[in-house]
Simulated scan of single mutants.
Amino acid sequence: MLFQTSDDDLYAALVARDAAYDGRAFVGVTSTGIFCRLTCPARKPKRENCRFYRTVAACLTAGFRPCKRCHPLTAAAEADAVIRDCLAALAEREDHRWSEDDIVAMGYDPSTVRRAFKRHFGMTFLEMARLDRLRRGFTVLNDGGRVIDAQLEAGFLSPSAFRDAISRLIGEAPGRLPADPILCVDWIETPLGAMIAVADNRALHLLEFADRKALPGELKRLRTAGRGSLGIGRTPVHDLVATELAAFFAGRSARFATPLALHGSAFACTVWQELRRIAPGETRSYSDVARAIGRPEAVRAVARANGANQIALIVPCHRVVGADGGLTGYGGGLWRKQKLIEIEAAFACGDKTACQ
Rank of each mutant, 00 (worst) to 15 (best):
D351N: 14
G322V: 05
I83W: 03
V289Y: 03
D180I: 07
V27S: 03
A254R: 04
V82Y: 08
A91Q: 04
I83N: 02
R24S: 09
G332E: 06
L87I: 05
V29D: 05
R84G: 04
L260V: 04
N309H: 03
T139G: 09
T235H: 00
T283L: 03
D351W: 04
F267Q: 03
F26S: 01
F248K: 08
Q338L: 12
A303P: 06
D351P: 06
A88N: 01
N309D: 08
L141G: 01
V113K: 00
A161S: 15
C40A: 10
A303Y: 11
V271F: 05
P280T: 09
G331A: 13
G171I: 11
L206I: 07
R146Y: 09
G264V: 10
A88M: 12
G264L: 10
G281D: 13
A13Q: 04
A76T: 12
L245M: 10
A203P: 00
V289C: 04
P296F: 15
A298Q: 14
T353S: 14
C317A: 15
I182T: 12
Q4W: 14
A345C: 06
G231D: 03
A154W: 00
D132S: 07
D9Y: 10
F156S: 01
A312R: 05
S253Q: 06
F125V: 04
D200K: 09
R295Y: 05
G217D: 13
H263K: 02
D164A: 15
L131Y: 01
M195T: 06
V321K: 01
E172W: 12
L141T: 07
L262M: 13
R37F: 01
V104D: 03
P191F: 08
